[in-house]
Amino acid sequence: MGLSEKDVDHVARLARIEITPEERSLYLRQLNAVLEHAAGLARVDVSGTPPTAHILPLRNVWRADEPAQGLTREQALANAPDKSKGCFRVPRILE
């Protein structure tokens, strides 16, 4: 189940990463090498085995719904590459 160049383009689009033609062929080769190694997992008998998402015996963790001081607007915006009128500024979305 190897990747094709088309798959690499599709994954890059899903991952929101612009790639060059050189990167496409490099990642194609390297990702296929890793996936080939991972193909060994197909040999393992996992019938009836539940998946492990994490190892702690915890379910939902709740806290009391009490207001607390979070970041101020100034703090939240302090690292923004672009901001305007107390908001993060992004390129136009609607024409």
Binding site: Y27, L31, L41, V44, T49
Partner: peptide
């Protein structure tokens, strides 16, 4: 970038069961 691409692929439609879910089962 390489790792984000690999992870995106492992989670993508059609490959989730073969890679991600199976890996979680072997983790068990």
């Amino acid at each position: 970038k390489r790792r984000i691409m690999l992870g995106t692929y492992a989670l993508s439609s059609g490959y989730y069961d073969a890679y991600y879910r199976r890996a979680q089962q072997v983790r068990t």
